[in-house]
């Protein structure tokens, strides 16, 4: 049965429909777009989305043992620590950065103990407030929490092989990571790091006379790419000037490579980041640049229409 008979609801003349479409829809689309742009303007939103997708991928595709309550505990303790620290320091609470740190920890730290997960999250966030030089925190928060907990407790560890080396996955990560860091204007760190690391890996293979398959295999490591695009690229803990960042990335790559191949520790690059972090103020001293600020989130006001409801004339 057709309910067109209802006088005031659904039947519209074609001309009314056209008016409706071209008038209101355009406005709505415009507003949605600018709203969307303001959401994507901040690279952290995209990063949160990607990291969260990686966790889902890890759990469902790679069967990580990651109980939901661990994820919840890490998120909760990171956000809670940030909240209290902001209260004490009188800053406005912003959940996005601690969320990224918590998601990175969830991806990279393996442990069977929920307490160690919580400890890592608290250490990560607390380090931002406690270890600072000239208004900038020194350590990448997730890296700090990860390394300290993994070094101190045998019940927590870093699992570099957990992502495997599936090439397609590697490309996927690289692509996504490129977008994320490109938005943060810190793609230079990622590219400089991976470039230097690749040069060292290929150089080593060339010196050893190894087939190319070996360095290629080593570069297709999921954990390496996650580090490259989601950890070292943090704009807050890298040098302010581009030249400083490129040189810093080269330093991290060289030390990470050395730890990995001369000291046989598979978490070489992750350790290299925490070891080199204290040199960042030095890079900032030598290479002057603007300190990075996250973009502020603002929602553009719609023009011309004061409210959301557009009335449809009844027949």
């Amino acid at each position: 049965m057709n309910d067109n008979s209802h006088p005031s609801r659904t039947y519209r003349r074609p001309s009314d429909l056209a008016n409706f479409t071209w008038g209101s829809v355009r406005q709505r689309a415009g507003r949605a777009l600018s709203y969307g742009l303001s959401l994507t303007h901040d690279p952290r939103h995209y990063q949160i989305g990607v990291l969260f997708s990686l966790i889902l991928l890890g759990v469902f595709q790679f069967s990580f043992q990651l109980p939901w309550w661990h994820v919840a505990a890490v998120l909760g303790s990171a956000l809670g620590t940030q909240f209290f620290a902001d209260k004490i320091t009188g800053r406005r609470f912003d959940p996005r950065s601690p969320l990224i740190s918590a998601l990175s920890l969830t991806i990279l730290l393996r442990t069977g103990s929920i307490w160690l997960s919580i400890a890592a999250a608290i250490l990560a966030i607390a380090s931002k407030y406690l270890i600072r030089v000239r208004g900038k925190h020194i350590f990448n928060p997730a890296n700090f929490g990860l390394v300290i907990v993994a070094l101190l407790f045998s019940g927590a560890w870093i699992s570099p092989g957990q992502w495997g080396t599936a090439p397609i996955f590697a490309i996927f990560l690289a692509g996504m990571g490129g977008v994320v860091t490109g938005k943060a204007k810190r793609w230079d760190v990622s590219l400089a790091f991976i470039g230097c690391y690749a040069a060292l890996i290929f150089g080593r293979a060339f010196w050893l006379g190894d087939p190319l398959a070996i360095p290629i295999h080593q570069l297709q490591n999921g954990a390496l790419l996650i580090f490259t695009f989601f950890m070292i690229s943090d704009p807050k803990t890298t040098p302010n000037a581009r030249m400083g960042r490129v040189l810093y990335a080269a330093l991290v790559a060289s030390i990470g490579f050395t730890i990995q191949f001369a000291f046989y520790n598979s978490a070489g690059i992750i350790l290299a980041l925490i070891l080199t972090a204290p040199t960042v103020p030095l890079f900032d001293f030598v290479f002057k640049g603007q300190k990075y600020h996250w973009p502020t989130l603002s929602f553009p006001k719609p023009k011309g229409v004061s409210h959301d409801i557009i009335q449809i004339p009844a027949e």
Binding site: Q65, R110, T111, G112, F153, S154, G155, A156, W157, S159, P160, P211, A213, I214, H217, Q218, Y264, S266
Partner: peptide
């Protein structure tokens, strides 16, 4: 040889499950 170009490298984890 093709799928395992590199020697096997191991690590001990704290996972006792």
């Amino acid at each position: 040889a093709k799928s395992f170009p590199e020697d096997l490298k191991f690590k001990t984890t704290g996972d006792t499950s």
